[in-house]
Nucleic acid binder design. Sequence first.
DNA 1: ATGTGC
Length: 393
Amino acid sequence: MSRHHSRQQPLPQSTLATVAVFASPTSWIESDAVAQCHQVAALDGMIHVAAMPDLHPGKGAPIGAAMASTVLYPFLVGSDIGCGIAVFPIGLKRAEPAKLAARFPDLDRALHPEQDSDDPAWAVVDGDIPAGHVDGLGTVGRGNHFVELARIGTVFAPDHASRLGLAAGDLVLIVHSGSRGLGEQILRAHTELHGAGPAPDPAAYLAMHDDAVRWGSLNRRLMAARVAHALGAEPTAPIVDECHNLVELRDGVYLHRKGAAPGHGRDVLIAGTRGTPSYLVAAHAGPDANHSVAHGAGRKMSRADALRRGRAKHTVEELRRTAVGSLVVCGERQLLFEEAPTAYKRIEQVIADLVDHGLATPVATTIPLVTYKTPDRGSTRQRTRRDHRRKRR
DNA sequence: ATGTGC
């Protein structure tokens, strides 16, 4: 993606923005990702780039960074505007993970307002559907997105956990998903005209962006409600819901977050992997960190590397039943390898880096029981996405 | 990441 764009007027003399990396020297950070941070720092209007310990290379822009600029750059937020992680308490009698896994609804299948009008999940909609965008409502998507049933493990801050209504052993649903096709449409509309250049009308972009942020949050609530009903529980309101791909106007500058969660006095669920704990933290990041914290463990390997190396290292069964005893529902073999826990950094190191830099305080861990990624198409033959496409033709 | 692109 080129960062050169046409301008009618001469640019003001640009000063290079500062780059701060919030990770210990021993934490593995790919040099390509740091290089991307410095490329971002050289953009017109950029003031400060804060890289989180889960930093890794993205398409054009780094993932795991908060970037403050006088100019709004849509590509720094990316296509999944509104992607985030929400946590919902769920009152369930403990049951076998295998039984629960089998009861998850098909989250590839969208809820349609008319065809599915009797679905009780609609009760979470308390207004209009943002942008009137109906396509893909209630679907989880692909990549690192998931819906997970987890139990609260170690509680580090009992009072804080208690204020959130949580105690060790409680069950929660964790939903990581975004705005599906809507955010992609919004970025594409900008990119077709302006490439990686700034939004010429920031207010117009922000209006669409804010719709996508609301849509993403609604989508997470819809999915939590679908799953709760399917598991025989009542839907609940999220106790945590933070979006990690967004831009906000803060102190007069555009603060872009790409794979970085708001960290100023927020509670944030920082995702581990599909086979390790996640961390619920109290975030208290200041201006040096662009008021942000990490959003997850962060990829250690590219998807291609994870697929290639994973095939030599793991069996499908090992990835479907993890080291913590959880089950992974994922009918796509390729995705299972791409998302293997070993393709990610150690979440404990990411959290330690945040703690050491004074950006967050752990509240509790969540231990996966069932992670849903894509519908299970049966275990007799694990298919890839390509197989599905072939079959359709 | 994505109702995409090889």
